[in-house]
Simulated scan of single mutants.
Amino acid sequence: MKSDKNTRLGVVLMNLGTPVEPTPKAVRQFLEEFLGDRRVVEIPRLIWWPILYGIILPFRSPKVARLYKEIWLPEGSPLKVITEKQVDALQSRFSSGDVQVTYAMTYGAPKLEQRISELESSGVDKIVVLPLYPQYSATTTAAIYDQFAKLIVRQRNISNVTIHKEYYSRRDYIIALANSVRRHWEAGEQSEKLLFSFHGIPKRCVDKGDPYELQSRKTAQLVAEELGLVESQWAISFQSRLGKAEWLKPYTDLLLESWGREGVESVDVLCPAFASDCLETVEEIDKENREIFLSSGGKRFEYIPCLNDSVDHIDLLEKIVTEYRI
């Protein structure tokens, strides 16, 4: 990373992470770190370790590796490629040299500690960590706080770091999502239903105080209002559940299946919890859940891509960063 004497603010865009390659070994390494985090899975370790090491890692890793291989790009995984494009696009907004943008991953590489060290060495005065999770959850954003907490315990001169907690109801975020839907409709046609599919979390997390469900529902409501939709035209659901415990409902796959059987002919699906397209959107939604809806009687399934490196998204990120340039 190049040093610039004019750089005063460092920005770290932060996402979940990705395997380094679509192989069982690389996927196993990634899943071991990810699913081994107590923030992600709160089951007592004596119960969870046998499940993780005896069942999930040996049997799920090859399956997930095959799924990654289907969506892998020449430059790497979609999540990594898109995150790098977001960094480049955001950096181009700060040509004066007083803002330096990079990225880190909660699981895998590059690590937050590495990026903070690089930014401090380049001469920044303060750092903003911007998690690309619009809705806060202890299962995602809090894991970033944990990593920084572990870092400062080892530091004598504490880094001047601020973590931006959430942006689920920001007007510019809502507008960006609504505009992505409008553009999709303008390029084709509006479906009978607009489904907001959020990544799920165990219901017990919400019961313990996690605000994720409320924030997700608020995001969906605000976007629906911005689009002028009536209640019958949209719905919210939760995807990507793991294990037998109850997760947030309704489940995306079961809702789409029921819609197909009930005669709903067309659906548009938006995934507002994801800032970048990844395995959970490209494969799980646009492939797996598409097939579920169509095989259940649906006629047309349209996936609306994440904000990715769209102008509206970079505008939003630029505004957030600018608020820290004091």
Rank of each mutant, 00 (worst) to 15 (best):
R8G: 07
R8W: 07
R8K: 15
L13Q: 05
V20C: 06
E21L: 00
T23M: 03
P24A: 00
P24G: 02
V27D: 02
V27Q: 00
R28D: 05
L31G: 12
L31E: 12
L31V: 04
R39H: 13
E42Y: 08
I47F: 01
P50C: 00
I51W: 04
R60D: 07
P62F: 06
R66A: 13
Y68A: 02
E70L: 06
P78F: 02
V81I: 01
I82Y: 15
Q86W: 10
V87D: 01
D88E: 15
Q91S: 11
Q91E: 07
G97K: 05
G108R: 02
I116H: 02
L130T: 03
P134S: 02
A143H: 09
A143Q: 05
Y145L: 08
Y145C: 09
Q147Y: 09
K150W: 13
K150S: 15
L151N: 08
L151G: 01
R154H: 12
R154G: 05
Q155T: 11
N157A: 14
I158C: 07
V161L: 01
I163Y: 12
I163S: 03
S169H: 10
N179Y: 00
V181N: 04
W185A: 04
Q190E: 15
L194I: 03
F196W: 03
S197G: 13
F198D: 04
F198W: 11
F198L: 04
K203V: 11
V206R: 04
P211K: 02
L214G: 13
Q215W: 14
S216Y: 14
R217C: 10
R217F: 12
R217Y: 12
Q221N: 13
L222P: 09
V223H: 02
E225F: 04
E226N: 11
V230C: 14
S232R: 12
Q233E: 15
W234F: 09
W234A: 06
I236R: 09
S237R: 01
S240Q: 08
T252G: 06
L254H: 15
W259S: 06
R261Y: 06
R261F: 09
E262P: 00
G263C: 04
C271M: 03
A275E: 05
E280T: 13
T281Y: 03
F293K: 04
G298Y: 06
N308A: 07
D309M: 02
D312H: 14
D315L: 05
L317T: 00
L317H: 05
I320D: 03
I320G: 11
